[in-house]
């Protein structure tokens, strides 16, 4: 029992949160009758995935991923090295002394990916709301059963 609570729930708390949120969103998308409520479900569903991504990039006690270097020429130099062809991972670590410091910082990549996903989510929501408005203009309702009744007529 102790193993269950510690290993399955506490250690994987972030995954539980995302799964619960995702199921709430999925339930609303499938079971709700009102189109706006379906869209709210969709937003929750997408947000759950963003939380999942953000949580996998963080570490306990890690700092923000900003390089602490003095002198401006360094940035240009590393960009030049990155442009060179065929860098293996090991060589890349040697080329970037900062890579050693990566252990102490959070992983920024999932966070950056989610910036894109947020934009996509907003755009999807916008398109979907425009479509709901069109449905409302056409059938005079945004309740699914009402709309279906009017389609059958």
């Amino acid at each position: 029992m102790d193993w269950l609570t510690m290993d399955l729930i506490v250690a994987r708390f972030n995954y539980w949160v995302y799964i619960v949120l995702m199921m709430i969103g999925l339930y609303a998308m499938i079971a709700k009758n009102n189109y706006m409520k379906k869209l709210i479900g969709m937003a929750i569903f997408q947000t759950a995935i963003m939380l999942f991504y953000v949580s996998i990039g963080t570490k306990k006690g890690a700092s923000i991923p900003i390089l602490d270097h003095h002198g401006g020429e360094h940035g240009a130099g590393s960009a030049h090295i990155a442009g060179e062809a065929a860098l293996k991972v090991g060589e890349a670590a040697a080329a970037f002394p900062e890579a050693a410091a990566a252990a102490g910082t959070t992983n920024p990549l999932p966070h950056v990916l989610m910036l894109t996903a947020i934009v996509v989510g907003v755009a999807t929501l916008g398109v979907a709301m425009a479509v709901v408005q069109k449905i409302n203009d056409q059938y005079g309702s945004i309740e699914e059963d009402e709309v279906l009744k009017r389609i059958k007529l």
Partner: peptide, 11 residues
């Protein structure tokens, strides 16, 4: 029924 079927497609 374009808007209606489009909504299902979005979901």
């Amino acid at each position: 029924r374009a808007a209606f079927s489009c909504f299902n497609y979005i979901m």
